[in-house]
Amino acid sequence: MAKTNNEIYAVRYARHDGRTAANNFIGGDPHEASGALEFYVWAIRTGRGVVLVDTGFDEAMAARRSRSVLRPIAEGLRSIGIAPDDISDVIVSHLHYDHAGNYDLFPRARYHLQDCEMEFATGRCMCNATMRVAFEADDVTAMVRKVFSDRVTFHDGDGTIAEGITVHRIGGHSKGLQSVRVETERGAVVLASDASHLYAHLEERKVFPIVDNADDVLSGYDKLKTLAASERHIIPGHDPDVLRRYPAPSTALQGWVARLDVEPIA
């Protein structure tokens, strides 16, 4: 596929400190401190509009889940010149609370979701408290309402969203987890979302403790590598290092927003 002038921005909005290795890795030591998780949404500016990957959560959900909202998503998007009404399409990587909230924030957007993720989030697995721990009924219900309002496009595996932007089912962490491949001037960048929470998951083949199928997680790492121009083109979903490895659009946005369609600085 030919390179395009798609621009990609990681927009940080929340953080979770005080995590242990057991919180971040299956088999991790519960007495060993581990890195924080950062929470991002990703904005893709195309020649025809703006595609958003995931919608995050708000202050009420942060309080419910003991997370810290640092800058509301709408404010973060406006800092790079994007208003919620500018969003034409929203790719929901999966329906966990930190990826599918703020469901009334983007009134013009069409939502993109994997068939099996909706089936998973509304089916018998949600009868099990362990399996539904990362889902919120209101987020899932809001997506069902969008289906009945003709605002959802379902995908079964690979799908095209816009020129140079495709989705690819990975599974593993959640049954219908999808990652996003974006063609840019520097080659194909893959927004892994939770197919790899941290760089360490991909690089050391570790697995995050919230999981539907660990084997699919590990197979997913290999798939991410085939989709991206190189391993350096894979962007994990929650790693603080993203903000250090990639430049900010301006000095004022350092530590808040990183531009991912350009070469890393570290």
Rank of each mutant, 00 (worst) to 15 (best):
L227F: 12
E183T: 12
F57E: 03
S179D: 06
G101M: 03
L52T: 07
I82G: 02
L260S: 09
P240M: 00
Y9I: 08
E136Q: 13
F208W: 06
D29S: 14
I265K: 14
D17A: 00
L37H: 04
D215T: 07
A22L: 01
A195C: 10
S149Q: 15
G81E: 04
N6I: 09
L243K: 01
S174A: 08
R45D: 08
F25G: 01
T46M: 07
H155I: 10
I44F: 07
A100C: 14
K175R: 14
L37K: 01
W42M: 11
H233S: 14
R186A: 12
R108P: 08
L105C: 12
E38W: 11
R259K: 15
N24T: 04
P72G: 05
P107D: 07
A109D: 09
G101K: 10
D115F: 10
H112P: 05
A137W: 12
A33N: 02
Y103D: 14
A252Y: 03
S93P: 06
F57S: 02
V90W: 02
A14L: 00
R245L: 11
A33L: 04
L70A: 02
S193K: 02
L113H: 08
R151V: 08
P107E: 08
S88V: 07
D85I: 06
V50N: 10
A214I: 03
R71M: 09
H233I: 10
V53Q: 14
L191Y: 06
L243T: 02
S93A: 02
A21G: 01
E263N: 13
E38V: 01
L113T: 04
G27P: 10
L260K: 11
Q178N: 13
T184Q: 14
L253K: 04
T130S: 15
R65V: 00
T251H: 12
M126K: 12
D241T: 02
V50L: 04
T130D: 15
E119W: 05
A22M: 00
H173V: 10
Y40T: 05
V167Y: 03
A214Q: 07
D194C: 02
W256H: 12
A33H: 01
S219Y: 08
H96Q: 08
S93T: 03
A188C: 13
F120K: 07
I73A: 05
L243V: 04
V189F: 07
D58Q: 06
V140Y: 01
N6V: 10
A2V: 11
V53R: 04
C125E: 13
